[in-house]
């Protein structure tokens, strides 16, 4: 880390589902104007961590800090109000509504309190998409259902970018995309980062990580086991960290050392 206060930070987060401890004291931090990749094997707790940090679920223990101040998210709306947006893997778009309606869904601009300010929302969507360099979605009044997978992904990410003021979580945004569409999404991610937002990229695609991330945090068995600056990371090193062969987290959180060793041995 560069010494600046992270825009969003989780410390010692614990989340248990019945007998399964999805998060066992996980730490996580994202700084403004950077892309932080969150990687880890299936079941490492990535999704749970995102849910906790975006208000979808509440942690059993631990704390969340926003700009260094402790906060509690009771609902995703609390997180939204504080400028934290999430792009879910299934995109959470209403397929029958157009891009503009989806972009403003739940936060419609109104006229006389009850009517959709349809034209204003359309204009604003077109402008926001253009500012983000999203040129693939030419017609914001076509139902999202009629768009391609890459275009839908662009709509979902652009929507979050429109509303996010601090942090965007992207849950496997390139998992279902081809090479060209993936490149566009990564470009979009850089664009969002350059606006000064903290971007959290959850992915299994390590080349994407090395391509776009400024920092990498590795999660294993519900804990952070390694962090890298991009320049220090290689695919081999990331794989070692994901599989538990490598850990460097002692630098970050000395108290975790003994337990990390256990995790590392497993």
């Amino acid at each position: 880390m560069n010494g600046s206060t992270p825009v969003l930070e989780g410390r010692g987060l614990v989340r248990t589902y019945g007998t399964v401890q999805a998060l066992q004291g996980a730490d996580f931090a994202v700084e403004a104007g950077t892309v932080t990749a969150l990687i880890g094997d299936n079941g490492a707790g990535k999704s749970t961590l995102v849910k906790v940090l975006s208000g979808v679920e509440q942690p059993d223990d631990g704390m969340i800090l926003l700009d260094g101040q402790p906060v509690v998210f009771r609902t995703p709306m609390d997180a939204h109000r504080l400028g934290i947006e999430t792009v879910f893997q299934d995109l959470a778009l209403a397929p029958h509504l157009d891009a503009a309606a989806n972009a403003f869904l739940g936060r419609e601009l109104r006229r006389f309190g009850v009517f959709n300010a349809r034209r204003a929302m359309r204009r604003s969507t077109i402008k926001s998409f253009a500012d983000l360099g999203v040129t693939t979605v030419q017609d914001v009044s076509a139902p999202v259902m009629s768009l391609s997978g890459g275009q839908r992904q662009a709509v979902a990410i652009a929507r979050s970018a429109m509303w996010a003021k601090r942090v965007i979580f992207l849950d496997e945004p390139t998992a279902a995309l081809g090479v060209v569409q993936t490149r566009r999404v990564l470009d979009l991610i850089r664009q969002i980062r350059d606006r000064g937002l903290g971007v959290v990229l959850i992915t299994h695609t390590l080349p994407d990580v090395l391509d776009v991330a400024d920092r990498v945090e590795v999660l294993r068995f519900g804990r952070r086991t390694a962090t890298f600056d991009r320049d220090d990371a290689t695919v081999e090193l990331l794989v070692s960290a994901i599989t538990g062969v490598y850990s460097n987290v002692a630098v970050e959180a000395p108290t975790d050392v003994t337990e990390i060793d256990i995790a590392g041995g497993g």
Binding site: L97, L105, N116
Partner: peptide, 22 residues
């Protein structure tokens, strides 16, 4: 023409998405 109507479409189109946007 109203937000109520648009939410009606959204709920039928993808209730989960509607819930997540509040």
């Amino acid at each position: 023409f109203t937000v109520f109507g648009r939410h009606t479409y959204a709920v039928g189109s993808n209730a989960d998405a509607a819930r997540r946007v509040g």
